[in-house]
């Protein structure tokens, strides 16, 4: 059979393969992860490694169940990327068995029940995260105060990771040392107690907690992806713009915008999670709408919802809207 297709090699094609794209995104996460390890907790590495390994095994299992050859599909590294994103989204002190549940939901219910890569309507990492958030609300808000770490030996940490429930089984860890540590959680608790927010204190706390640096790391990685043209500007810009617009109009006076942008997982979400092409809208105009929706919803959830961070649910809700956005965009394009 003669070759009648486009001769990519002779044409000098330089397209990145799916695998290269996914690995580049992983590469771009490195500055953020390094900052995370330094300022928040090196345990994230344990979580990420564990999540990647179990995700790969589970994916191999799922592909075999579907009666396909697993090597070519696993090689695209998309599930490894999703696993790392999940590990970054959960608190570092999360017990591993709970992370395993999240990974299983991510791989099986988030990806393979729909037919694998390219067919899943929802962002798999966010499906896993949402399942964990609903199932284990207590440990999912278990943010480690970096100051509390000093009291813990490495052995204790590993022991803590492997036990069923960290809070009850490790009395050495002080309660107030490990909970309510992210700036967003802090603001929420202050608001709940009707206390006035002291700005300088808040900034101090943010800088101390290192979240700002972590987000700067993610921003650096995101800019790298933009520069390498692996992602396009439409989604990150519109997510942040959507958030900033509502936050500027409606949030508490006195809370600076840059603080709220850089203290949660908005940057990670805008550059790494919402840009997953499979679950985002496909056209440029659609992506702007999609990103704006995520930004707006994440503000609503942060400000008025029951959870301190809204990116995950915002992404999932906008994933729901993608077919509508795509359809509307196609109709618009046709009428132009």
């Amino acid at each position: 059979m003669a070759n009648i297709i486009v001769d990519r090699r002779a044409a000098g094609a330089k397209a990145l393969s799916t695998q290269r794209i996914m690995l580049s995104v992983v590469l771009a996460l490195i500055p953020g992860i390094v900052a995370y390890c330094y300022f928040i907790s090196p345990l994230v590495l344990v979580n990420a490694l564990f999540a990647v390994l179990t995700a790969l095994l589970l994916e191999a299992f799922a592909i075999r169940l579907r009666g396909k050859k697993c090597m070519p599909q696993i090689q695209d590294a998309s599930i490894a990327l999703a696993a790392i994103l999940l590990a970054l989204a959960v608190p570092p002190m999360i017990p591993l068995w709970q992370l395993l549940v999240g990974v299983a939901v991510m791989v099986l219910l988030g990806k393979h029940v729909y037919g694998g890569l390219g067919h899943n309507p929802f962002n798999p990492a966010m499906v896993g995260y949402a399942a964990m958030l609903i199932s284990f609300p207590q440990s999912m808000t278990l943010w480690m105060d970096p100051l509390g770490l000093e009291n813990l030996a490495l052995v204790d940490l590993i022991q803590a990771k492997l036990t069923l429930n960290i809070v009850t089984s490790n009395p050495q860890i002080a309660w107030d040392g490990i909970t309510q540590a992210t700036p967003l959680e802090h603001i929420r608790s202050l608001k709940a107690q009707s206390q006035t927010i002291v700005l300088s204190d808040l900034i101090q706390r943010t800088m101390d907690s290192g979240w700002c640096w972590v987000n700067l790391g993610f921003l650096l990685g995101g800019l790298f992806l933009l520069f390498k043209r692996i992602i396009q500007w439409h989604i990150p810009v519109s997510v942040i713009a959507g958030y900033v617009l509502w936050a500027g109009l409606f949030s508490e006076p006195g809370l600076p915008l840059h603080l709220s942008v850089f203290s949660g997982s908005l940057i990670l979400g805008a550059f790494f999670i919402a840009t997953d092409p499979v679950t985002a809208a496909s056209s440029k105009r659609g992506r702007l709408i999609f990103g704006f929706g995520i930004g707006s919803l994440s503000f609503v959830i942060r400000e008025f919802g029951g959870y301190p961070e809204g990116i995950a649910f915002a992404v999932l809700l906008m994933n729901l809207c993608v077919p509508l956005i795509d359809h509307a965009d196609r109709q618009l394009a046709r009428r132009n």
């Binding site: 409606f250 707006s296 609503v300 400000e303 008025f304 919802g305």
Partner: peptide, 8 residues
């Protein structure tokens, strides 16, 4: 907050 969310 509730009213705003509902309206949105």
């Amino acid at each position: 907050g509730i009213i705003f969310s509902l309206l949105l």
